[in-house]
Simulated assay, not measured.
Amino acid sequence: MERTFIKYFVNNSMGPDKNISSVGFEEIPSGSSYPTLNHSAGYYFNADKGRVLREYQLVYVTNGEGVLETENGGVFSIKRGMIFVLFPGEWHTYYPNYETGWSHYWIGFGGSEVEGWIKRGYCSKETPVFKVGINDEIVSLFRKAIYVANEEQSLYQQVLSGLVVYLVALMCSIDKNRCVGNGDFSSKIDYACVLMRELVEQSVSMQEIAVKSGMGYSLFRKLFKERMLCAPVQYFLSLKIQKAVELLTATTIPVKEIAYQLSFDSPAYFSARFKKQMGKSPVEYREEYSSK
Rank of each mutant, 00 (worst) to 15 (best):
R3I: 12
F9W: 06
V10I: 11
N19Y: 02
I20M: 06
S21V: 06
E26W: 01
E27S: 11
S32I: 06
P35K: 01
T36F: 09
H39N: 08
S40A: 13
A47Y: 11
R51Q: 12
L53E: 13
L58F: 06
N63K: 13
N63P: 03
E71T: 05
N72W: 03
F84M: 06
P88M: 05
G89D: 05
W91G: 07
T93A: 10
Y94I: 14
Y95Q: 08
P96T: 10
N97D: 12
E99A: 14
T100R: 00
H104K: 02
I107Y: 02
E113K: 00
E115D: 15
K119G: 00
E126P: 01
E137W: 05
I138L: 14
S140N: 12
R143F: 02
V148W: 02
L167N: 02
M171D: 09
I174Y: 09
N177I: 00
C179L: 11
V180D: 00
D184N: 07
Y191R: 14
Y191M: 14
R197A: 04
E208C: 08
I209Y: 06
A210P: 05
V211T: 14
S213W: 03
G216A: 10
L219C: 12
L219S: 15
F220C: 09
L223K: 11
C230D: 05
A231Y: 13
Q234C: 07
S238H: 14
V245H: 08
A250E: 15
T252L: 11
P254C: 06
S263I: 12
P267Y: 07
A268K: 15
Y269I: 09
A272N: 08
Q277I: 01
Q277M: 03
G279K: 02
E287I: 10
E288A: 13
E288Y: 08
